[in-house]
Write a protein that binds this DNA or RNA. Structure first.
Lengths: 190, 190
DNA sequence: TCTGAGTAGTCACTTTTTTGAGTATGATGC
DNA sequence: GCATCATACTCAAAAAAGTGACTACTCAGA
């Protein structure tokens, strides 16, 4: 039960529909969890059944009706319990790293290409997160916001995401450069 | 099928038993994938059935017999195919981040504690990876090794792991400091 | 007027990952 | 001499995550 708590945490700041939640999971929440819309709808259904969130129907004209969910007291308590329990260690799990591990035993050309695509994607995400951070802290500077802002959780996770993306971009570019250089000027035998 | 390729990539450097592989997955390979021994044994069985690895029985005295596996030509070809295919984007997936996201809506004390434990664990991993990198590059310096070393794949993924752990440690320490400071000097109302 | 994109979701299914409980032997430490 | 650790694995099951295929309605643009 892991997506469960990510959904609860994402839902702390107000009412969201499954659809809106899916968008949040594509940007801010993606810094600590990832899920497809179907998974979110399913999890919301389970959470509601367990009384951890409450949904209400909102009838709309000119677009489909929707259900908005908010965290209940029981949900908040569950999150409290979760926060106090031990966390599993985090780790990277990335196809691209697997390819790099094999890098000098398989063709490097496609890997170099993917490293560069990744770097570009990371760049895009860095901009997105920068904008999100500016928006979250409003007119305060970061230090002041972190000390006096009233809701810093999402900001803190975005900081982590930003650092991750920067690091990832730099690594991708460096590794791509190394692999290109080695193609240009071959090394030992083989 | 993702663990599959991680196992193949890890097996590129020689013959390993499931048991040895499990150790590798706890240190170096953990930089790009993570798995429990049971999964590795199961995956090795499947890989062998599919002809991507070949196992041979090694009879031992004074300890249980073991089976050593190596990547076959078909396995190498599969890895080649995998390297050329598109990769899924990577993302962080971390309980602790979920807790931080909820940080100012639930009790922060246990979260601060966990952040510090994590920072310490990251420190330990940083040392481990540093030693592994020194061992992998032998008496060359990094630049020379990356250019002329004959097997740099594992080195490159360890570099990623090292950067990740450093970043993670710094973030944990900073966030712990921020949350402590906010407990000391409360902000807005609530 | 047709096409595609955005909103809002559901159902069924498969794959992957995790968890828990075992087996067996020799070596090492108190 | 007894307990625990390290080696080396296996089996079964549950939980979590991911995939594909669908429904329906509105609006904007070609």
């Amino acid at each position: 039960m892991a997506l469960r708590h990510a959904v609860l945490a994402a839902l702390l700041d107000g009412e969201y529909s499954g659809y809106q939640l899916a968008k949040a999971f594509d940007i801010g929440v993606a810094n600590f969890w990832h899920a497809l819309p179907q998974q979110l709808y399913a999890e919301l259904t389970r959470l509601e059944k367990d009384g951890l969130v409450a949904g209400r129907q909102v009838v709309q004209e000119s677009r489909p009706n929707k259900r908005l969910f908010r965290v209940t007291e029981a949900g908040r308590a569950e999150l409290e319990r979760f926060a106090a329990a031990a966390s599993k260690p985090s780790f990277i799990r990335d196809d691209l790293l697997v390819k790099v591990q094999a890098a000098d035993r398989v063709g490097t050309a496609p890997v170099i290409e993917q490293l560069q695509e990744r770097a570009a994607a990371a760049d895009a995400k860095i901009e997105l997160l920068g904008a999100l951070l500016r928006q979250l802290r409003g007119d305060m500077d970061e230090e002041e916001f972190l000390l006096r802002g009233e809701r810093i959780g999402p900001y803190l996770t975005c900081l982590r995401g930003l650092a991750f993306e920067r690091e990832h971009r730099d690594w991708c570019l460096r590794i791509a450069a190394v692999l290109r250089e080695r193609r240009r000027a071959p090394h030992g035998e083989r």
